[in-house]
């Protein structure tokens, strides 16, 4: 089961809709990449590497940005409640 809610609708143009809450969200390109990978079931641990590879960024930045992004997702309640804390 993916880390993010499996009901989330991801629009390729950078728009997320949560049909459970009725909220919609704007995301930038790197966030879209992450959301799609998460929806496809990529575990968080592999995400950092995927991000580094995709954008050619160094690991410190990838780690910091990713942690911050996951924190954003948590607070926006977009993570799968069935999963244990994604921070584990």
């Amino acid at each position: 089961m993916p880390v993010i809610k499996n009901t989330l609708e991801i629009d390729e143009r950078g728009f997320i809709f949560d049909p459970q809450t009725g909220s919609s969200f704007a995301i930038n390109k790197p966030a879209l990449f992450i959301m799609k990978e998460l929806k496809a079931g990529l575990p968080l641990r592999s995400l950092q590497e995927a991000l580094q590879k995709k954008y050619g960024i160094d690991s410190k930045i990838a780690k910091m940005d990713l942690a911050d992004f996951v924190r954003q997702l948590t607070k926006l309640e977009l993570l799968n409640p069935d999963k244990v804390s994604p921070l584990d």
Partner: peptide
């Protein structure tokens, strides 16, 4: 080459829905 920026998500809210 994709220009990288910090991945970010923001909730859409009236008054700030204009890119």
């Amino acid at each position: 080459k994709k220009l990288y920026e910090k991945p970010t998500i923001v909730r859409n809210m009236q008054g700030s829905m204009n890119k």
